[in-house]
């Protein structure tokens, strides 16, 4: 085999490794995509608009908030600002992921950031931590199925929205927290993991009860990150540079 053929077959197997890891995310997000489509149409969106929103924004929580505000006839600029606020955590992900994909061509980086979601970032970060390279083919395998299913299922939800059976009995509303807990647990070997988790849990819960959603996400996240910044570097496992 020529060197080119070898690297191509590596890229293929990397892609399918990513696809395999994407499956829990596809399963966990499916009900939300369907639900989003159904709610969107219920709040006055057309099927095409629901489809467009999923295809262009691709951020479940922010889409739900946007749709909810739209249904309440809130001013358009406030809807956009709320979408921005819910997605603001991506700024932190972006800074972290940028370190892992700096070796990609710029166009690939631009696309990579477009499909970056919570699990996409977390699974990539876990791979980088285990010493493996975050390659474009692998990253695309991880992200593309989630994107494609999300967009298709949103449109399906918009068309067939009223047909979803009892979502509570199926546990659908609580699948994502379980999945996110799994991601949190996956980082437990990191220095400062427990203090960071405790700080974020306490701060986000207090913020949730006082300031309200969606700000509890940013406030809780900043609390955990600040703790890691403030504690002396020898605790955080990051050596002082020579």
């Amino acid at each position: 085999m020529s060197a080119e053929a070898i690297s191509e077959s590596n890229a293929k197997s990397d892609f399918w490794d990513g696809v395999r890891l994407s499956m829990p995310v596809v399963v966990a997000s499916a009900p939300f995509a369907l639900l989003f489509g159904a709610i969107a149409v219920d709040n006055g969106f057309s099927v095409l608009e629901a489809f467009l929103m999923s295809a262009l924004i691709f951020g479940g929580a922010s889409q739900m908030v946007g749709i909810e505000l739209f249904g309440q006839h809130v001013a358009p600029w406030l809807i956009v600002l709320s979408i921005f606020a819910v997605n603001f955590r991506h700024v932190l992900y972006s800074a972290g992921l940028g370190r892992r994909i700096a070796h990609w061509p710029v166009v690939q980086q631009a696309l990579g950031f477009f499909i970056m979601t919570d699990p996409q970032y977390a699974v990539s970060e876990a791979r980088a931590q285990s010493g493996e390279t975050v390659g474009f083919a692998w990253y695309l395998g991880l992200g593309l199925p989630v994107y494609v299913f999300w967009v298709i299922e949103s449109a399906l939800g918009a068309v067939f929205g009223k047909l979803i059976p009892d979502t509570h009995a199926l546990g659908i509303d609580f699948l994502l927290p379980i999945y996110f807990l799994g991601l949190v647990m996956g980082f437990r070997k990191r220095p400062l993991w427990l203090p960071v988790v405790v700080a974020s849990a306490v701060a986000s819960t207090i913020a949730y009860k006082t300031v309200g959603s969606p700000w509890h996400v940013s406030i809780g996240a900043v609390a955990g990150v600040l703790l890691a910044v403030i504690l002396p570097p020898h605790h955080s496992g990051v050596g002082e540079r020579p």
């Binding site: 370190r99 919570d118 970032y121 974020s200 986000s204 819960t205 406030i219 996240a221 955990g224 990150v225």
Partner: peptide, 15 residues
């Protein structure tokens, strides 16, 4: 930055 994943994801679980 290393604390980001645990910090953000926790806020999606705890409340």
């Amino acid at each position: 930055l290393n604390a980001v994943p645990a910090a953000v994801l926790t806020t999606l679980v705890a409340p």
